[in-house]
Design a binder for these strands. Structure first.
Lengths: 343, 343
DNA sequence: ATGAAAGCGCTAACAC
DNA sequence: GTGTTAGCGCTTTCAT
């Protein structure tokens, strides 16, 4: 273990004060160009590596942004993180990711880790398993800016970026209706999670607009996994009056449903239409290609990061938090297209 | 911004020394149960949050493991991280992820960030764009344990976990040969990356075993993206003697190739067989389901984390680094099955 | 079982 | 333009 070199080593070498070295390294305006040059040269020669732990302890700022995501195995989040990174990098910030594994426990540990590491802010997407938001309030109480994205919560009282989930589900459902499907099932995620509650609302609104009843039997509450999607679909198929279309709350759910339909020998989109949600990469490559909703991932990440910088610049502390709502985009592929217009 | 509460606040409240509080909080054996109890109670009441920055500065240990992954959008890495987390958590360590976006530049920044944050170790999978490993050597030189996984490099001289890439490609190719395919193309990733070079070796070995020549025209060096897979496949189809099977270095590459084949109206696996690599989630849901190679992701993560703990326990510093090689598993689905045995 | 004191490496307020 | 000084909040000898 090589002895760590500090600014004092550089200072000694150059016969100057450690503070001078610190300033030179940080490009402080009051330091002469010659000194800066000399300091940098010695620093390089000695393989000096700044200790941001010490710097953070002293300055109270780490220039690190913590991002809490439910799972690194979902492309969607990786994509949002890209957006966050782009904006963060431009401001000289680094992004660190913690995956909560969809549990409240994991989320608490993530917050704890970030708090201990004294990140300058936290951007989070709430885990499926989270019911109590106390740990998020903790961040607020400690003055760590918090911004929520995608899986947001108005209760939290912090800025957020999300898509218009209700509108998205409305679009998806209306699209199925316009294709002539009439008995539309809905496979949701846990309804205690706001975004899934919102989406259900949009779905129902579309049904209502077309004068259709909200048949309780056609609503399934899954856990947004492939397996759960398949199980829900199977249950739906056992119904006395099975659905002729299904609106899924997630692409993976749709994948499971599709699998169940295939096993049952049901033609998609001929007999049953299906639409997903999230525009995951695989959707355009499966057979039939999955219609879905695009959630503007990069944009979402960028906006979330921007909200953080606004927050930390103190631009709207105290006033009501901003909620940015992005407009979703309907992506029509094959799985939901019954009507062939032209050819 | 609530005033931060420190161990001194707790100490004052209880009329004891800060050192006592520190010990109590860390469950030091020499502290009486009564004192510990009292300290914990006050800590809770004051919402005390330990400042690990200060602790790290003093102790020189952060109990944080940095993980460098090329991209958070690849399921494979998310899965490996799960394995890492499991082992790390058991040792009281936290995992922080940095995505390098497949570039050497990103990788350098990640190393820099981890170095500054004084993580206790780094687990890394080398980016596609990385040619110079100097930044990784830096970690070693500074005494930060480094373990490589998946995209490893023997040159780095550090412990690693990978799968037997050569054997994997051999299995994939042999499987195609056993299915009766004879003109087998190979879509590789950049050949300066060791794992892809290794895989190519395995592929050639299989060809050789079956007495087939390594036709240069059948080898394409793509960049492991869907688009590149499609482009390579198109080029292959334009050959005077197009291939009757294609072995891809990655599932996403295979996806692109599949797309190109579909556009060209070629039946898979009837006319052309195809096999991928990585066992990405989507593979079993596309049509035809993609044959592939499983890479033991969770296991890989666990082993990598274990290697780190061995390293930091000083078990084999100085001696030659251990390289764990996991055995891959051939997963036969539809895309490569020409021969229908039974039914 | 607890206290006293020193210091990890850096930055920032105040000198000059 | 640079030096001095005083910590940031914690851990860790060494005492007692």
């Amino acid at each position: 273990m090589a002895k760590k070199v500090t600014i004092h080593d550089i200072a000694r070498e150059l016969q100057v004060n450690a503070a001078t070295v610190s300033r030179a390294l940080n490009d402080h305006p009051a330091i002469s160009a010659r000194t800066k040059e000399a300091v940098r040269k010695v620093a390089r020669r000695l393989h000096y590596q700044p200790n941001s732990i010490a710097a953070s302890l002293r300055s109270g700022r780490s220039r690190i942004l913590g991002v809490l995501i439910p799972s690194a195995e979902i492309t969607f989040f990786g994509s949002v993180v890209h957006g966050i990174e782009r904006v963060a990098a431009a401001e000289g910030y680094t992004v660190l990711i913690y995956q909560t594994n969809e549990s409240e426990e994991g989320e608490r540990k993530g917050v704890e880790t970030f708090l201990r590491s004294r990140v300058d802010g936290v951007l989070a997407s709430i885990a499926k398993g989270t019911r109590d938001l106390a740990h998020l309030q903790d961040l607020k109480r400690r003055g760590v800016p918090l911004v929520l994205f995608d899986r947001v919560s108005a209760e939290a009282g912090v800025p957020s970026v999300s898509i218009n989930d209700s509108a998205a589900a409305f679009m998806a459902t209306e699209h199925l209706l316009q294709q002539g499907y009439r008995r539309i099932a809905y496979i949701s995620g846990p309804l205690h999670v706001p975004i899934w509650k919102e989406r259900l609302k949009g779905h129902r609104k579309a049904l209502k607009k077309y004068g259709l009843p909200a048949d309780r039997a056609l609503l399934r509450e899954g856990d947004v996994s492939i397996g759960s999607g398949a199980a829900c679909m199977e249950a739906l198929l056992r119904l006395p009056e099975p659905p002729d279309a299904v609106c899924c709350v997630e692409d993976y759910t749709a994948l499971g449903a599709l699998q169940a339909l295939r096993r049952a020998g049901i033609a998609v989109p001929g007999q049953v239409g299906i639409i997903g949600f999230a525009n995951e990469l695989f959707g355009q490559y499966i057979e039939p290609a999955l219609s879905t909703i695009d959630q503007q991932t990069i944009r979402m990440g960028e906006e979330a990061a921007r909200l953080f910088f606004e927050l930390s610049a103190g631009k709207f502390y105290g006033s009501a938090p901003r909620h940015i709502v992005l407009e979703p985009q309907l992506i029509i592929r094959q799985s939901s297209v019954k009507i062939h217009t032209a050819s």
